[in-house]
Simulated assay, not measured.
Amino acid sequence: MALINSEIQPFNATAFKQGEFVDISEADVKGKWAIFFFYPADFTFVCPTELGDVADKYEELQKMGVEVFSVSTDTHFTHKAWHDTSDTIGKINYFMVGDQTGNITNNFGVMREGQGLADRATFLIDPDGVIQAMEITAEGIGRDADDLLRKVKAAQYVRNNPGEVCPAKWKEGEATLAPSLDLVGKI
């Protein structure tokens, strides 16, 4: 699963976003930062907690130039029904992508074999359409939008500051590293 530094594959899908059905493709991702947030299914248990957590950070992500695409193999119709009936999901303003054919889920390599469901997986895509970070967890392990936000900030910092890297637990405004021969063995 060597997807880091690879370009996202072409896709077409319909998403539910802010009360409307919209057609999307990889062209909607290029030129901006994007998060693809895969989850197994609508009307489940861990999934709404994660999606709600990302919804709480969506405005901040938007200010950073990041678009969010949640993806499951449910239809866009099911996404609308869930959005209309759940207080947690009802606060979502980002794209809820219906991937009933599994094309997008398979492109990212996170389809559960024989189940037709996506793994719990997150991909951070840069403006060139290249995957810069990914996280995949087991069914019962929910993800944390605060850590995702930290990773976005680190990826954007590294892109904007060639020659610098962000160490473990790096937070915006903290010191970075400039890899060099002089730094070898001194960390």
Rank of each mutant, 00 (worst) to 15 (best):
28 D>G: 03
35 I>A: 05
16 F>R: 04
18 Q>E: 11
131 I>K: 03
40 P>H: 01
2 A>N: 15
76 H>Y: 12
73 T>A: 01
31 G>C: 09
56 D>M: 15
23 D>E: 15
101 T>K: 05
11 F>G: 06
117 L>N: 06
12 N>C: 00
117 L>A: 04
113 E>A: 13
68 V>C: 00
29 V>D: 07
35 I>N: 03
115 Q>C: 06
62 Q>K: 14
51 L>P: 09
96 M>I: 07
131 I>C: 02
61 L>N: 00
67 E>W: 01
77 F>C: 06
84 D>F: 04
48 P>K: 12
72 S>L: 08
42 D>S: 09
114 G>K: 13
132 Q>C: 10
58 Y>S: 12
120 R>K: 11
91 K>V: 06
108 F>P: 08
111 M>T: 07
55 A>D: 05
135 E>K: 15
101 T>E: 04
43 F>N: 07
69 F>T: 06
120 R>Y: 10
29 V>L: 11
90 G>Q: 11
56 D>N: 15
56 D>R: 15
114 G>Y: 11
48 P>D: 11
124 L>H: 08
126 D>M: 00
127 P>S: 07
112 R>K: 14
50 E>Y: 07
79 H>D: 02
71 V>H: 09
91 K>A: 09
113 E>R: 09
128 D>N: 12
94 Y>Q: 02
114 G>P: 02
51 L>I: 14
121 A>Y: 10
116 G>F: 10
121 A>K: 10
22 V>H: 03
26 E>Y: 06
20 E>M: 07
7 E>A: 13
121 A>S: 15
112 R>L: 12
51 L>K: 08
4 I>K: 11
24 I>A: 05
103 N>M: 08
24 I>F: 03
79 H>Y: 03
98 G>K: 10
13 A>T: 07
48 P>W: 10
1 M>Y: 14
4 I>G: 02
89 I>E: 03
24 I>L: 10
60 E>R: 13
110 V>C: 11
16 F>P: 01
136 I>N: 09
89 I>P: 00
111 M>R: 06
118 A>I: 10
2 A>V: 10
30 K>S: 06
22 V>D: 10
72 S>G: 01
66 V>Y: 07
91 K>P: 04
82 W>G: 08
26 E>F: 05
48 P>S: 13
24 I>C: 02
74 D>G: 01
46 V>L: 01
64 M>Q: 15
85 T>H: 13
20 E>Y: 01
7 E>G: 06
72 S>P: 03
100 Q>G: 02
65 G>Y: 12
16 F>E: 04
106 N>Q: 14
125 I>V: 14
112 R>H: 05
111 M>A: 12
4 I>R: 04
93 N>G: 14
130 V>E: 02
31 G>F: 08
115 Q>N: 12
48 P>M: 13
128 D>E: 14
64 M>A: 14
65 G>I: 12
122 T>E: 06
49 T>D: 15
126 D>G: 01
23 D>H: 11
40 P>R: 03
103 N>H: 09
36 F>W: 03
7 E>K: 15
78 T>F: 10
10 P>V: 03
105 T>K: 05
52 G>L: 03
39 Y>G: 05
111 M>E: 11
47 C>I: 00
22 V>L: 14
77 F>Q: 08
101 T>R: 00
132 Q>A: 09
95 F>E: 08
